[in-house]
Write a protein that binds this DNA or RNA. Structure first.
Lengths: 344, 344
DNA sequence: TTGAAAGCGTTACCAG
DNA sequence: CTGGTAACGCTTTCAA
């Protein structure tokens, strides 16, 4: 006994029975005491709690789940992570989920379509709920979850399917961008979109177009193909190749990552941003704030988005019968150096 | 019966007993049949399998774990995701893990230190093993896992602790960069590092320095503070501010993300890259390949890294007594446009 | 206020 | 080849 290295040895697993025996009570009592059941005497509870701490007891989440409880697991479906916006969403989700005692189980990540694997995991692990941040594969997942009675909340995506959602008010946000550009004296506009039509991108296009056309301006749409830096770059080259008289004074790209591509392409072709062309994005990813870009953009309230998303999810986990709810959050225009007032 | 929407209703959960009853056998038999136990007659197995498919049976991973099996969960500890390199690691991990039937449970993400939350999850969910891709918080995790007998594999990090690891041969890789630069005729070198000393960064510094000093060149070290674009940018501004005669011909940054910052800073100050100064990085993140950067860099074999990492992990999950193993992978020098041959 | 026992879904051991 | 039974660790009636 004098020389045993107790702490280092993997002692037998400490369970409710271990504690029960040492405390001279039943395992039910231990469970109740530890879970704050009000009908346990203060004395017993104190004794049990102390013992639990002393023995380093840690409840087994799996056993707990099996016996009818919640798993504490939330399934995560992440969109194309090449776009840093999804990474900031991920960061926020992970830290906020931890605060609420939830563990994110990655079900899917990236642009590809949802495979069987994902469906399996969803069922096998009894996730309490699902957070979906993808613009594309959301419908499949929603169906899957709907069938299993697993609540789903979409982030950065609205849907008509059985699911709640939290997203930025894309329509209004893009509209604000348009009005800002008009107010700054711009008269010729280009809208940079992508081919893969996500609801998010579509709304932003629509939101940007409307006020402009209502004011009698026409908007030229250019697609970069994919929604990425490369897509934006391609669109930018296209713009740079336009004859002088068709060249826009302002470009709005439906995502920051594309906007950065546009900026890079224009500057590479010797076109000054913002001197000759103003560029605006949407999202406010970290790169946009770099001094080399200084991109003017509609900033999404990522923190609040995730917070509201988890609120909705937890509420539906507690009560699966709550009706679906759609939350729209207002973005904030961040004016940096990629835009400039034009002489009228 | 004629009008019931069977598929949409959440039918009772299908378990082994459901199948057992319908097949007129015991649940043990069902379990064995479904798990490919060789002592089950072909007839029975066929019948059971068919039934399982028909009823849409899906084994419950939690129950399975509880009864002594593996959870199929691997804990994930991710480093500072602001660095895109960690994202590509994440992507690779998620897809390769899925292929092997493993689910990544996010334990921690980001630069911060490991909180209690992480430790809890580690124990509560019976993760089979842990993958750690962080340069900093690896020791804590390793300790934690060591105590619980959970195998750990470090990615992009070597360690003297109880854990196996897979990483790029940083020493050799950085050495190759140095030799390449000398061969291209560079004579004055700057090494850009960060204050937070990760083993990875340290090895790269050492690897870069050694061959240079052996050849009689001196290397000036500049720290950008943090290992990020901003850190690199600061270092770059520092370099740009150097008096003409002290200005280096080549700069090596210990990570691509820093190298990009350096490039941006230099160019912003009107210093041509590669015309006046060559810049080289390490990692080969996606951004480095953008035409606007074209960064010459030591490319890390991310795919192989993750593959070997999972190999090591699975082997140790199967047999916890295997000794720790350190795998070094050779990087590949990718020469792009940020470097140029100097006249001698 | 507490205890005994059943059950969650699976696998594993021991019989037959 | 197959069936019974115990066990995994916890929660939750039902009794006392």
């Amino acid at each position: 006994m004098g020389f045993s290295d107790i702490a280092a040895l993997p002692r037998d697993k400490v369970t409710v029975v271990t504690i029960a025996r040492r405390a001279g009570v039943s395992s039910s009592t231990v469970s109740r005491a530890l879970n704050g059941d009000p009908r346990i005497s203060d004395g017993t509870r104190a004794r049990i709690t102390a013992l639990a701490v002393e023995l380093g007891y840690m409840p087994d989440a799996l056993a707990r789940t099996l016996s009818g409880g919640r798993s504490g697991l939330i399934g995560l479906v992440l969109g194309p992570v090449e776009n840093p916006f999804y990474i900031s969403l991920l960061q926020e989700i992970v830290s906020q989920a931890a605060l609420r005692g939830l563990r994110p189980l990655i079900l899917h990540l990236g642009g590809g379509s949802v495979e069987d694997e994902t469906a399996h995991a969803l069922r096998q692990y009894r996730v309490d709920g699902c957070l979906v941040t993808s613009a594309h594969l959301s419908s499949d997942i929603a169906d899957l979850c709907g069938q299993r009675g697993v609540p789903v909340v979409m982030l950065n995506r609205v849907t008509r399917l059985r699911a709640s959602s939290v997203s930025c008010d894309n329509l209004e946000g893009a509209g604000e961008v348009a009005r800002f550009l008009m107010a700054e004296g711009h008269r010729r506009f280009v809208l940079v979109g992508a081919d893969t039509a996500s609801s998010t991108a579509l709304e932003r296009e629509e939101g940007f177009r409307r006020p402009l056309e209502e004011s009698g301006f026409s908007v030229t749409r250019i697609s970069g193909g994919v929604s990425s830096w490369a897509g934006g770059f391609r669109a930018g080259e296209h713009i740079a190749a336009l004859p002088e008289e068709e060249r826009p004074q302002a470009v709005f790209a439906v995502s920051d990552i594309m906007a950065l591509g546009v900026m890079d392409a224009l500057r590479r072709r010797g076109i000054g941003v913002p001197e000759e062309i103003s560029v605006v994005g949407f999202d406010d990813i970290a790169e946009s704030a770099r001094p080399t870009y200084g991109l003017t953009t509609m900033s999404q309230p990522v923190g609040t988005m995730v917070q509201r998303g988890l609120d909705l999810l937890l509420a539906r986990i507690a009560n699966p019968n709550l009706p679906d709810e759609v939350t729209l959050l207002r973005g904030k225009l961040v004016v940096r150096d990629s835009t400039r007032q034009r002489m009228v």
